[in-house]
């Protein structure tokens, strides 16, 4: 009997995402695939936001002046570069999970995308921090956008992971 199999009201029921790996199961799987699809869209947003939606400083004409007067990228340059990778990975993993549609695939992809969401939250704060001053474009726009998108990804994947939909056999 699978992990999610349990007795209820005299009949056997099988947990949706908690059931045997590799088996397609009704409503729970459909909902989880929908959630992963939504998370994939958020991943695409994470990848494009630092360039097109809430641009970081360099795309708004802000650069740092070095000791010899040379123009250097600001701190948020690395944030933007990593955000593209994080967003692309989240989107790819979520699309893969939604397309495969098996319980094991959805569970694995949801865990990976959840980790990606948490990493996206940490990206502008700890991993590759944005600039310091509040008025800079990366602090005013990119930072909150990445934190919110990361949180949304994590929530969507956590819900997809936590779905447990008993079905009568």
């Amino acid at each position: 009997m699978g992990q999610g199999v349990k007795e209820e009201g005299g009949g056997q029921v099988v947990g949706g995402l908690q059931g045997e790996g590799g088996r397609r199961m009704g409503q729970g799987v459909k909902a989880a695939r929908g959630l992963l699809g939504s998370a994939a869209l958020v991943g695409v947003f994470i990848a494009v936001a630092p360039r097109y939606v809430f641009p970081v400083c360099e795309f708004e004409g802000f650069f740092r002046t070095g000791p010899s007067g040379e123009q250097l990228f600001m701190r948020c340059h690395q944030t933007a570069v990593l955000a593209v990778w994080f967003g692309a990975l989240i989107a790819a993993v979520c699309v893969l999970g939604a397309l495969l549609g098996t319980v094991a695939a959805i569970r694995a992809c949801a865990v990976l995308a959840l980790a990606g969401g948490v990493a996206t939250i940490a990206l502008p704060i700890w991993i590759a921090p944005v600039c310091k001053t509040v008025s800079m474009p990366c602090v005013a726009g990119t930072w909150p956008a990445l934190v919110l998108a990361g949180a949304l990804t994590a929530v969507l994947c956590a819900v997809a992971l936590g779905l447990k939909v008993p079905q009568r056999r």
Partner: peptide
């Protein structure tokens, strides 16, 4: 609550 878990799509939507 158990009934809601049986109907995941509706609950999530």
């Amino acid at each position: 609550a158990e009934d809601l878990r049986h109907h995941a799509e509706t609950t999530v939507a």
